[in-house]
Amino acid sequence: MTVAEYNLSVEQFADNIYRFILKNIKDTEKAKDIVQDTYEKLWMRVDSVSYEKVRAYLFTTAYHTMIDMIRREKKQVDFEQVNANKFSHTDHYSDVQEIINQAIEKLPPAQKSVILLRDYEGYSYDEIAQITGLSEAQVKVYIYRGRMFLKNYLVNLETLI
């Protein structure tokens, strides 16, 4: 990959990766760090990564960097507890997408990641499997389970309202 292609990959994918990571970890500074680390790693392997495969490489690297970070932090703090306290809110929801965003936060991490890769980036089961290191069947199961959870979340909320 040339320097120009590398810079093009920054233009094309930095926002998408940032969005994906931010949605997963909800911390802008850490999300920025992960994006920066990801491109740092890409730059170190710039000669061996082709431009055609750079998108998959970036998402794979970012995903695993994020997982590593979450694992590290779990040793220090109960992430789920922080997550629930820090990001829950009691405001009224303005639209369905906002409810879905809230529901996505409640998905288990693996389901959340595959759903986001599917919906945000339109990746196939096979591509998601390569990025996350899961099997294709696992990815499919997670997506189906995630969809059911999101749908049920909408139904339950409607019932409450």
């Binding site: 926002d15 969005r19 994006v35 730059w43 879905i100 965003n101 969809r147 749908k151 909408l154």
Partner: peptide
């Protein structure tokens, strides 16, 4: 309901300072 349960990316969220990533 299933049609609605798709996450839509917020395009307003962008990575700041992309120029720092460039070479």
């Amino acid at each position: 309901l299933y049609k609605q349960v798709k996450a839509i990316p917020d395009k307003k969220i962008i990575f700041p300072n992309k120029k720092f990533l460039k070479r």
